[in-house]
Amino acid sequence: MRHFFRRKSSCQVAKDRLKILLISDRVNCSPEVMEFIKNDIAKVISKYMKIDADNMEIQINTKGAKSGRGAKPSLYANIPIIDVGMTDLNLNR
């Protein structure tokens, strides 16, 4: 019975940790470079809308794709938008 209430198995914990660990190992992208990418993205998006650059996050993972060597990593960005009022600037062009 206690199996039903047990926390995540240590095997699953190991797999989850490895997934994240190996992505950063394989990409071999330094935190410094990630910071440059983040700043550049913030700069471009800021042209079109007001964003909260201090609270944006970017990370490289293989979410959705199957794990393993063949999987292509992708870049995920979470950018909090403060005001989308400037988007019509885009439409008028």
């Binding site: 198995s9 797999k15 997934k19 063949g70």
Partner: peptide, 18 residues
């Protein structure tokens, strides 16, 4: 492996993909 405390061979193969 059976009690969920060790990765199975399939888990390891999936991760290393060789």
């Amino acid at each position: 492996v059976r009690r969920g405390d060790m990765m199975s061979s399939q888990d390891v193969v999936d991760i290393l993909a060789i």
